[in-house]
């Protein structure tokens, strides 16, 4: 009757698409998880309901984070109470802040400007307002 052949062809096409999706994501994920060795560490702490940042030299900031264009930064993400999610949508930076764990994310801004920072995991009353901003400045030095 040929029913089986048609169905197998269909399944084979689906599997081919899925293999493509899997392999391509694997390649990109591998690239993206490779943090540059010279990335500067920024400690990010989420708590109800704001973000605080600590630079490598000990400078602390609350809600607003100042970074320099052309440098790579590695975020060490902590939480002080419940789960949060550190997110800079414009730079595709995203990782959960889990109490008791240290998570990592990195990026290297190549454009100056001000970008929103937000919390992307429900964390209670003012979750919607757990916002900050990222200011990327020209490297003057």
């Amino acid at each position: 009757m040929g029913h089986d052949t048609a169905e197998w062809v269909f399944v084979a096409v689906v599997i081919a698409v899925l293999v493509y999706v899997g392999v391509d994501s694997w390649i990109v994920q591998k690239e993206v998880e490779d943090v540059p060795a010279d990335a500067e560490v920024i400690k990010v702490t989420g708590q109800q309901w704001f973000w605080s940042f600590e630079h490598a030299d000990g400078t602390k900031e609350i809600s607003t984070l100042h970074l320099k264009k052309g440098h790579a930064y590695k975020f060490e993400i902590y939480s002080r109470d419940v789960m949060h999610s550190f997110n800079i949508p414009d730079w595709v930076v995203f990782e959960d802040a889990v109490p008791g764990h240290t998570n990592h994310a990195w990026f290297a801004p190549n454009e100056v400007g001000t970008y929103p920072i937000q919390c992307r995991e429900y964390c209670g009353l003012l979750h919607y307002n757990m916002r900050g901003s990222l200011v990327v400045e020209d490297d003057k030095s």
Partner: peptide, 20 residues
């Protein structure tokens, strides 16, 4: 530049996947 453009990589992947 020397660093990987993270957002470009991820968004390009996104557009490839949506094309598929």
């Amino acid at each position: 530049k020397q660093y990987l453009n993270l957002r470009a990589e991820v968004w390009n992947l996104f557009f490839r996947m949506t094309t598929a």
